[in-house]
Computed example of a mutant assay.
Amino acid sequence: MCPLPQQPSHITKSPRDVLDSIFAFSPNRDTLGATSYFIVGNEGNILIDCPALDQTNLEFLRSHGGVKWLLLTHRGAIGKTAELQQNLSCEILIQEQEAYLLPGLTVTTFTQELTITPTAKVIWTPGHSPGSSCLYYNNLGGVLFSGRHLLPNQQGEPVPLRTAKTFHWPRQINSLKAIIQTFTPDTLKYICPGANTGFLRGQRFIDQAYQRLATLDLPALLQTQAIL
């Protein structure tokens, strides 16, 4: 088992409920303030991106049955993946183009889509990074864990955000278009974004997700300039 960093226990808050059987961890400075999520399910628990590696989080994960899959939605979410795998004996899942960033680790890769449980599948959504992906959970009316592919803006609306580090902006817009074409208001009720959760102002998810995405002006978004 990998030793843990020595950190005061009061730094880390316990994960909080988001939706039924879904929890969110405090933003992780190892992944530039990203939010990690945890789905507890009968078919195997899924951890989405890396939370901070500390005793509070590890004890929480173990108390809920451990982790079967650790999905990395993009290269910036890797954090302390190796140490988490050593402590939790979980399987790592990442899109094939970014697996090279985990040398020496045993990983499961996918190309376009991969169903990992009867209720969850991973979808390749390139643009933010070459191997950016989202996880779709078909319970609760449909929940999309969007990593950094879709984030809340200052008004709390889900949007793709173009930054100076965006890999390929037109591909990101095409990935968003594919999501809109794939889902419906009946199959996509919520988005759980992988960052910017402070813009949700206490709400723990984005609701009416499909309707909000369907109103986006994709041609105008395509012309958006990068922000720092």
Rank of each mutant, 00 (worst) to 15 (best):
L105V: 06
T166P: 03
T119V: 10
D217V: 10
K177G: 10
A226G: 12
E91S: 11
A24K: 06
I180C: 14
Y136N: 14
Q211K: 13
S14N: 13
I191K: 09
S129I: 00
L140M: 08
L102T: 09
P3I: 07
D207Y: 10
M1R: 15
K177Q: 15
I191F: 08
R204C: 06
L176N: 04
Q181Y: 12
Q181H: 15
L135F: 05
T35I: 05
T106D: 14
K177A: 15
T119W: 06
P160G: 14
G142D: 10
L53H: 03
M1C: 14
D207H: 14
L19H: 05
W124I: 13
L102N: 11
T35P: 00
W124R: 15
L58Q: 11
Y37P: 09
F167G: 07
I227R: 15
H64S: 08
E113P: 02
G44Y: 03
A214R: 10
E59F: 00
T111A: 08
I227L: 14
P152M: 02
T73Q: 01
L150Y: 02
L114A: 14
R162I: 01
D49A: 04
A214N: 11
F199H: 13
E91V: 06
I227K: 15
F205M: 14
S26C: 13
S146C: 10
A82W: 00
E96D: 15
R29A: 10
A209K: 06
F23I: 10
G33F: 00
L102A: 12
G131H: 00
E43Y: 09
D20S: 13
C2N: 12
Q208V: 06
T163K: 05
R148M: 05
I116D: 12
N42W: 06
N42R: 13
L221N: 08
S89D: 05
Y190I: 02
I180R: 11
T115V: 13
I78E: 00
G66D: 02
I78V: 05
R201Y: 08
A209V: 11
K177L: 09
P126Y: 05
Q181G: 15
T56E: 07
R212G: 05
N45R: 03
P27K: 08
F110P: 04
K177T: 12
L188I: 02
N57A: 09
T166I: 04
I39H: 03
L218F: 01
Q86I: 01
T115F: 08
